[in-house]
């Protein structure tokens, strides 16, 4: 698959073996059927881009660090505000006014000092997207604006790397695992710019965190070729009713401007 080509290429540059500490630290997940040292090694030698590190991106980055991802690239502009704190769990009240992404990096570094972290105190835009995304083996789209999500989609298609689009609204959440050339891309699913989407949306931190955990599981499955990722499907839940569904998406659009 396409992402393995990328990973193999990167492995030629810097290949890290599992240490005895790694084998001890990750021993509980190494007991998961189908997930062994080969998969752990893949994680250790992989780089994930997470934009942004708010209600979804923060827990995404933390769970990737917990799982043993080798490197995290975090992109998020702006300074922490009081009203971020119901969901942005990598930051604390005494950090209000400080750079969000640097606060997040500090928390993650204390959590897993073996995970390399590179921060960009800026949001993805059409000028910086190549610079920010080029090194990533996988992208997690957690931005609150479709403009950013579509840029990440273009970068994923251009770089032939998987994108995990994670989104929520109020008590609902959804995850779309995208593998260029195999699944519909984000622009296949949403061909018209969603004019009604607004920057401010209702959110419980627990709901955004739930989206994040589903996204990380799907990302690890794709990255490590482990279990069955939900390719061509949207995983959608409604926490009001506490139901989770997988929706089979239509095939790629033949005239998609992004992936065809």
């Amino acid at each position: 698959m396409c992402h393995l080509t990328v990973a193999t290429h990167r492995w030629r540059l810097v290949f890290k073996m599992l240490t005895e500490v790694d084998k001890l630290r990750y021993s509980w997940q190494l007991d998961v059927p189908g997930f062994g040292e080969r998969e752990q090694l893949t994680l250790k030698n992989s780089t994930a881009l997470v934009t942004r590190v708010g209600g979804i991106g923060g827990p995404v980055a933390q769970s990737l660090a917990a799982a043993g991802i080798g490197k995290l690239i975090l992109a998020h502009a702006g300074k922490l505000r009081e009203d971020d704190l119901n969901r942005q769990i990598l930051m604390s009240r005494d950090q209000i006014g400080e750079s969000r992404v640097k606060c997040a990096a500090g928390t993650l570094k204390r959590f897993n000092s073996d995970t390399q972290i590179e921060v960009f105190d800026e949001n993805v835009n059409n000028v910086n997207i190549d610079r920010i995304s080029s090194e990533a083996d996988i992208i997690f789209g957690c931005a609150p604006l479709f403009e950013e999500r579509f840029l990440l989609n273009e970068a994923a298609v251009k770089g032939n790397k998987p994108l995990i689009d994670c989104a929520m609204y109020s008590m609902e959440g959804q995850v779309i695992p995208i593998v260029p050339g195999t699944t519909p891309c984000l622009k296949c699913i949403y061909p018209d710019d969603p004019e009604h989407w607004q920057r401010k949306f209702p959110v419980f931190g627990a709901v955004s965190s739930l989206v994040a955990q589903i996204g990380v599981i799907e990302g690890i499955k794709i990255l490590c070729q482990f279990d069955d990722p939900s390719l061509g499907e949207m995983i959608r839940f409604d926490a009001s009713l506490m139901n989770v569904k997988k929706i089979r998406l239509l095939p790629r659009r033949e005239n998609c401007p992004a992936c065809n």
């Binding site: 991106g57 957690c142 609902e172 949306f201 959110v203 955004s208």
Partner: peptide, 8 residues
Amino acid sequence: LLPPIAGG
């Protein structure tokens, strides 16, 4: 009916 969502 599922409109696009992008909350992060």
